[in-house]
């Protein structure tokens, strides 16, 4: 049997039926991971425009000064904060710490992420 998850099965990770808190944590973790990976490549491509000279880069900076891109940045920040905090949660429970309160840890993770989201949203859009 294969050791590697088959790509054709990946959508099943996000199967939202009937899930418990732990599964939502898992689904959000996968989604944020995929999003951050995508962003990393995007980021590298954008940095690549530096090689095409100052004008090209300034031109690019010009285009991203619109609310849609700012919203995108906010999503990146929120994804990174959630992924990092949930990583701590998973790390702790992996060593047997807080297994019985894993749901509460997930809710705390969500709460902190929400506070951060609001804080940055206010800063970025004001």
């Amino acid at each position: 049997m294969s050791n590697k998850p088959s790509p054709s099965n990946w959508p099943k990770w996000f199967d939202p039926r009937r899930r418990e808190a732990g599964s939502w944590a898992f689904i959000l973790n996968r989604l944020s991971a995929l999003g951050l990976t995508f962003y990393l490549f995007l980021h590298l491509i954008v940095l690549g425009t530096l090689a095409q000279g100052e004008a090209a880069y300034d031109n690019f900076l010009e285009t991203i000064h619109n609310p849609l891109f700012i919203l995108g940045e906010l999503v990146v920040i929120v994804g990174a904060v959630y992924h990092g905090l949930n990583g701590l949660r998973v790390g702790l429970t992996s060593f047997g710490i807080g297994v019985s309160v894993q749901k509460q840890l997930f809710y705390i993770t969500l709460a902190i992420t929400a506070v951060v989201a609001v804080f940055f949203a206010v800063r970025m859009f004001s």
Binding site: G22, T93, S94, Q102
Partner: peptide, 24 residues
């Protein structure tokens, strides 16, 4: 990957998630 679904559906008090963490 710590989805804890196993423990949520276990009908027999095994709590597999806790046991996996303990095994680690």
């Amino acid at each position: 990957h710590s989805a804890f679904e196993c423990t949520a559906v276990c009908p027999s008090n095994v709590d597999p998630a806790r046991r996996i963490m303990d095994l680690r």
